[in-house]
Design a binder for these strands. Structure first.
Lengths: 155, 155
DNA sequence: CCTTGACCTCAAGTCAGCTTGAACTGGCAG
DNA sequence: CTGCCAGTTCAAGCTGACTTGAGGTCAAGG
């Protein structure tokens, strides 16, 4: 594979050029040189970007992800960290599942006012107790049809 | 029940006074008057705050939540909106579940380097495809002991 | 009467993860 | 040679949900 310019990397990875420059500044990726002013990337950066996307999807911050790359560039991912994040996700999932069930009930509930519905009041109680916390919104990008892909590929 | 000052509302709801002022500014809550400069709140504001917490937990923004309160202050929650949010959560949950399973596998994987593991590479491919997106972190606050409080005061 | 301290207002700061804009550069097609 | 245009830098802006700080007010206790 040939070297890539930033537009090519952006095109193949789906990551905007501005974000790529930002990642470089943060030390998450590196170009292998310059042609004039222009950055030149090794195709391997695509895998690197995939790892970054994976980390982000799992809920790691960019700073945390940076720590997962050893100085030599090889990913050095602590399995304990992964397991901890999985547990984290598990808790989030349970929380969100409860909310989803609550919402579905409220949506279907025949009570004239939501406050008349005992189930609604139960969820409300839970929310007030701080049990549940706001989920994160997705970024500006959203190729939602890709959901099926992970189901097929990952599951 | 007596009127409450802002500190009392903060204590009982677990919401910091600064956030209460912010909510008032946004029109999410209202005080029933002033004693001197100081805001005076009706105890009903606690239920209101519980609703707000519920909305936040379900992933609604403050602006969206504001729209759910009719001008008279009664919650007027469109059941379609609730159902849509539930579907939203469902998608998020599926996404996170896939991530969690992937992480668990990677954590348990015996391959010396993660990149040697076929499963890891599959997840990676999925992440690169833009399938998965970052989840949201919870807010900084979590006064979980407040559970009992709302149970007593509001419900 | 005077101090204390909880409350007030308003502006600005915080955090993450980028995006946007202005001003500039340089390789290459014509 | 020239102009195009994709690339560059650096600084500033954005979103959301608040927090923090400076400076001001007021009711009550001593």
């Amino acid at each position: 594979m040939k070297d890539l310019d930033i537009a090519e990397v952006a095109r193949r990875s789906g990551v905007p050029a501005s974000a790529l420059r930002f990642y470089e500044e943060k030390g998450l990726i590196a170009s292998i040189g310059r042609r004039g002013l222009r950055r030149v990337f090794d195709p391997g950066v695509l895998e690197r970007l995939a790892l970054i996307a994976l980390g982000r999807a799992a809920g790691f911050s960019l700073d945390e992800i940076a720590l997962m790359f050893a100085p030599d560039g090889q990913p050095q991912i602590d399995r304990k960290v992964l397991a901890a994040k999985a547990d984290d996700l598990d808790r989030t999932i349970r929380r969100l599942s409860a909310m989803r069930d609550g919402l579905r009930h409220a949506a279907a509930c025949p009570a004239p006012r939501h406050m008349d519905c005992p189930s609604f009041r139960r969820i409300l109680k839970a929310a007030a107790s701080g049990v549940v916390k706001p989920p994160k919104k997705r970024g500006p990008r959203s190729p939602s049809e890709c959901i099926a892909i992970v189901e097929r590929e990952v599951m």
